[in-house]
Design a protein around this nucleic acid. Sequence first.
DNA 1: TCAGGAAAGGTAATCGTTTTCCTATTTTCG
DNA 2: CGAAAATAGGAAAACGATTACCTTTCCTGA
Lengths: 371, 371
Amino acid sequence: MWFPPACEEGSKGLVQSGVLIDKTTIMTKAPDHQNPAKSPKPASITAVARHAGVSIATVSRIMNGIVNKSSPATQLRVKAAVEELGYRPVTHGQSLRRGESRVVSIHAVNLANPTMAAIAASAETALREAGYTMVLCDTHDQPDLQDTTLLDMRAHLVRGYVLLGTIDSAQLAQFQNHREALLYVNRRPHGATSTPDDFVGIDNKAAGAAVATYFKQRGLHHCGLIHGALHSPATSDRVDGYTGTLSETGQGLNPRHIFAGQGLNHLQIGYDGITDLLQKGALPDALFCSSDLIAYGAHRKLSELGIQVPRDIVLMGFDDNPLNDWIAPWLNSVSVPYPKFGQAIVTGLEAIWNRGDRGAQILPFTIVERA
Amino acid sequence: MWFPPACEEGSKGLVQSGVLIDKTTIMTKAPDHQNPAKSPKPASITAVARHAGVSIATVSRIMNGIVNKSSPATQLRVKAAVEELGYRPVTHGQSLRRGESRVVSIHAVNLANPTMAAIAASAETALREAGYTMVLCDTHDQPDLQDTTLLDMRAHLVRGYVLLGTIDSAQLAQFQNHREALLYVNRRPHGATSTPDDFVGIDNKAAGAAVATYFKQRGLHHCGLIHGALHSPATSDRVDGYTGTLSETGQGLNPRHIFAGQGLNHLQIGYDGITDLLQKGALPDALFCSSDLIAYGAHRKLSELGIQVPRDIVLMGFDDNPLNDWIAPWLNSVSVPYPKFGQAIVTGLEAIWNRGDRGAQILPFTIVERA
DNA sequence: TCAGGAAAGGTAATCGTTTTCCTATTTTCG
DNA sequence: CGAAAATAGGAAAACGATTACCTTTCCTGA
């Protein structure tokens, strides 16, 4: 199980070069190497109370807007003291007493992915405006790292956990059972245990279907597909919607026009995908890539081969990176309103906390045509 | 000054529709709308102590690796209890008692900028591995937001403040005076008050100079420049190094080949820059853009005009976005080792905390030639 | 034999808040 | 006028951890 670094198996605690060191020794040495001009401690509620000549209870009540427990005159005096001393309640004292903090943690599968980073950025702003603080964790798509971060954040008494992409993990299941405030963004969890109420994202299946319809409308009949790991329900939904709609229209999807990639490096997946499709035969007229990064990788390989986009092949990405307008004017893409995710996350979390009802936020997507 | 939302001017505290509501009323109502299967509280140190039949002091000592205050048998018993109950110390209790937490805050000027996001991502990993938790704040390049976030984070008892780009602000000056643990990344602060020891980044002036040298070596004599807001010392250093070296070689920089942009939207700056340079006369042979995004914007405009890169004009960006290899193979760029910034930030912070000495980390840059 | 130290571990203060009880002092109103 | 109710505010108990200080027991060596 888990133990703090200080008492790990390997370390012998405070044993140094064979000699047991009493903690006291260390503490009495500590003040020595402290820098001289140490920052003066910020004012605490006690200081404010003393300064205003009231009890800390009164200060606390006034800070919390409880208006019917003190006279207006007292309130003025206290507020003056607060300003004079620059007092701000230390959140740890509050959280400890209240048993919960105003911190929300975000657990992202891969912050190197610009899309994840964009969602995190949007969440930061929305959370801050709603009065929350954001802690950001990168799970690197590893179940045990996800577990570690979840437990760490619980130790921080965070009020909600936002999962920006998820993998199944032991602790996640525990958290679900314990009814912790979990909000899934973009990727639903695998287990069917959780309600569909705790999701923020788009309807990926509909988006995949829309891509197929778009290709058909443009008269493109030989459709291909390069996608990332299917263990992500977001990806598999997109793929299902796309292939489903293609087979409904009768034409279906030639297996030789499909490449299934793996791993986090979508750029490489796209690059390898083109290589693979060519090996298996001719390229399709239209190619759906389950992310923009995959499309970039594919485009790179196509350029190297002298194949022109969109003259020779039409590409459709997913996510619509804001840079596309500037550096990928050849790329169509399914645009997901990521800048709006932040607000949706806040709304979703508040719905979960209040258990009013539906916290689910299904946002609209659009297809951006550039080619 | 600052007051918590609950006691803002506008709000009348707990007055609702003209009726004063006693806090008690609310609290007694609260349990009603709590969801039935509320998560059971995680085990506290008291629970562990009871379970193991020892005092909480002993549990605490064992958790902290103080090995000479309890028998091996007791230690085993306690560790067993810890595992059985899944105990993890609540950080707020620890921070409150110790007067400091293991949280580090990052204040970024603009998280929408992929470079900032990349640094934040790298910092997250390095901090986590070193046992710290990262809180991320976006200051949107506004002094008052920077002030707000700094004060917020102090209320969180954070142990260090990492400024990912800075603007001058009142609180920042205060924090400097109070010798708080501030670490500047990429952009030094304006005020000369701070030591140069608290900086992580590259030598921007040398980098600007290197670009000039590179252009000269390639025999490009008509050099241009498009840069962002000069109030960022990082930008002005780059510009100084570039122009300085150009004038040393005697050729100098034609003022008609310079465009000075403003604001956060670097893409637009690049686009507008080309328009401006053309209005002022002919384009240079080589163009230094003070960020990759500016280069993207410039390239877009050039493409629209049918001007080819690098045949007609050589571009040099800055930062070397990892996507460049894939989507901007026409762009040379000054590569900054952002993935290494995370570790450098941790090293720098630890140097500040221990005041051993220099926390400054000047990392190497390289010029990546693609065109 | 016994002074003194080490070993093992408990008690209680403390960090900064919130909130439940209290206790006075006014007000209100019949 | 007097009882009930409201107002204003204080005292103290939590919340979960750390640590200075104390107590007990056992062992060592002069």
